[in-house]
Design a protein around this nucleic acid. Sequence first.
DNA 1: ACCCAATCTTTACACTGACAAGATAAACGA
DNA 2: TCGTTTATCTTGTCAGTGTAAAGATTGGGT
Lengths: 217, 217
Amino acid sequence: MKSKKQSLVNNSNKGKVTEKNSYHHGDLYRVLLDAGEQELNERGVEKFSMRGVAKRANVSHAAPAHYFSNNKGLLTALATAGFTLFLEMQLQYEKKRAKSDMHPLVAAGLGYIEFANTHSGMFRLMFASDQPDWEDVALKEASCKSYEHLIELVHGESIQPESLNELQIQDVISAWAIVHGMSHLYISGQLEPLSCMKKKDYEAYMANIISRVLPAK
Amino acid sequence: MKSKKQSLVNNSNKGKVTEKNSYHHGDLYRVLLDAGEQELNERGVEKFSMRGVAKRANVSHAAPAHYFSNNKGLLTALATAGFTLFLEMQLQYEKKRAKSDMHPLVAAGLGYIEFANTHSGMFRLMFASDQPDWEDVALKEASCKSYEHLIELVHGESIQPESLNELQIQDVISAWAIVHGMSHLYISGQLEPLSCMKKKDYEAYMANIISRVLPAK
DNA sequence: ACCCAATCTTTACACTGACAAGATAAACGA
DNA sequence: TCGTTTATCTTGTCAGTGTAAAGATTGGGT
């Protein structure tokens, strides 16, 4: 039942896990986050339910309240964890294609889209939802890291986000928008015609599109 | 209170409007759609409430059920009406800029983004929601019209959507994605740096970005 | 004048988020 | 070792939601 896939949160307190079935769960925070992600991807942001998450975690409906003050709190934590995973997937794509002649920005873009595809509920939570508390510091930090990484990809590591001029920002927005747009179109089924393509062809096709907006250099 | 702005639906049955305060409302379908749009833009898709719409229309909470079998039904109708408005706004932008040297596709793109901005709730319903019934014929037809118009803009009126080859589809996706991406980034506050621009400069800026993906020709 | 059907309201139920109060067990000090 | 404290989880409750069923009101047709 419980798929023991990669957890959303760093498995920090591995020493004191008292393992289920006891009144005191021991590791509920992490379990709730995992259950939350499951709920998110299976039912979507719109039908996301606190009680549903509790049920998945085999815990009473009010248990999550101790860790997340309310619905918003849980979704904020989920979005935060999501941004970390999001960045990781991009880095992974960059690394894997480092030896090819593919521009790192394009590789990251493919990772971006792949994340949206495999975590569509999470993606919509992160980029098309009013639910999370966008003033939350942890969430802000996580999302900013993604943004800073994007800037690195477009303009090199040396540059500071604040010191970008308007034209440089234009390059950033262009790259972001086209990848972000394709992600949204993809997960809403608007790119169905491409679904019959082989992965290799599909990636080349997408890479072509992304390349159109690369900075003139 | 009730802003008598442009209605979402063609004012068809104008003869038999029995005007409020009677038990039989007379024009409830239209009123519910308008109230629904209001609810959508004020509270967003995620907090959209059937009872809230009924309250706005000064009607019992179960009244909408007679016109829309359920929540999904109302949101489907709203999305359908939204696509009509969506296309209208693009056409309007094209017409207004027909005499300038701006590419019609770019003009439509500006309209696209403007629609997202002024109808963000509706936009998310139309492009980032599982709520509407995407198999509904009226909705399908309305959204397809938008898609066909996009193809016209990219490849001229003569061409049929089905007869596009892969490269031509690539042009379509590119244009769509960058405009769609900017729309999403815009309404989620990710393009804040541009908010201080004057409208003219802002449009030129956005037009520049869109132009990057125009078909090579 | 009557009945019918369309339209709207009332009532009811299951589900949800949120809160308060109670139950359980782990941790801690004697 | 034992009792107390505290963190953790459960149960119970309430208002609000979507939906279905049954009742009330009205207009139109005969």
